[in-house]
């Protein structure tokens, strides 16, 4: 199905996870630390990365940061083992697509991987079935997972694109955090605050293009909505 890269400094965990993913039909490559992980990524062919946060030498955050700074939007899931890691993992600076807290259920990890891959496949999708979505200066091309603001393309991860797509499908309508999570991932296991960090990331990306851009509006106590056409 897909080529995954597993990075963790615990060989036992790597081994049992490899077994599980191979059972699910994926091809798995492993790396014992962030530095080795980056080398494996350079070799190419990886479609999704699952990385531990706490590793010697190059940790999960550093790996993710390096990847994003290099302009990659490769789907990446971080395996966190501290509550304090979660905010940082999803923060603007690191930019992981998702996280799973250790110790996790293999089933949950697999479903996250599947969800991310599905969205990722859309990006590469050849079938141009869905029409371009335009709201004001915003242009979304679902078949290629491409986003443009006032004609300028903005690099977004699949999760960010899906979030914006949901909001853009019904401009002006308020989506609660729970509803957004459901639409994004099909589950609400994780705290809804993960949505906040996605929104923050999107806002920053818009601001880099146009400091005055105010596309996503926070509705206090309710959720988020897309500002109507201007």
């Amino acid at each position: 199905m897909a080529r995954l890269l597993l990075i963790d400094d615990d060989p036992s965990l790597l081994e049992v996870l490899t077994l599980a993913f191979e059972d699910a039909g994926h091809t798995v490559a492993t790396a014992p630390d962030g530095a080795a992980g980056l080398r494996a990524l350079d070799a190419g062919g990886v479609e999704l990365v699952i990385s531990d946060v706490n590793m010697p030498l190059v940790d999960g955050f550093a790996l993710c940061r390096k990847l994003r700074q290099g302009g990659s939007t490769l789907p990446l899931i971080l395996l966190t083992s501290r509550d304090s890691d979660i905010d940082e993992a999803l923060g603007l600076d690191v930019g992981a697509d998702d996280y799973v807290s250790k110790p996790f259920s293999t089933r949950v990890l697999l479903s996250r991987v599947t969800a991310l891959l599905r969205r990722s496949e859309l990006r590469r999708g050849s079938k141009a079935t869905e029409p371009t979505l335009s709201v004001g200066r915003l242009e979304l091309l679902p078949e290629r997972v491409e986003l443009r603001y006032a004609g300028t393309p903005i690099e977004v991860t699949v999760t960010e694109f899906r979030l914006l797509e949901c909001l853009a499908s019904r401009p002006g309508v308020v989506f609660s955090r729970e509803r957004l999570l459901e639409l994004l991932r099909g589950d609400t296991v994780v705290e809804p605050r993960i949505v906040d960090t996605y929104v923050r990331r999107l806002r920053r990306k818009f601001e880099q293009v146009d400091p005055a851009a105010d596309v996503i509006e926070t509705v206090i106590g309710a959720g988020y909505r897309l500002r109507g056409a201007r």
Binding site: D8, S12, L13, V16, L19, A20, P103, S105, T106, R107
Partner: peptide, 14 residues
């Protein structure tokens, strides 16, 4: 503790 516990859990599920 979480790494070995994660391994044990994954083994159990497997």
């Amino acid at each position: 503790f979480k790494n070995p516990v994660a391994t044990i859990r994954a083994c159990g599920e497997s």
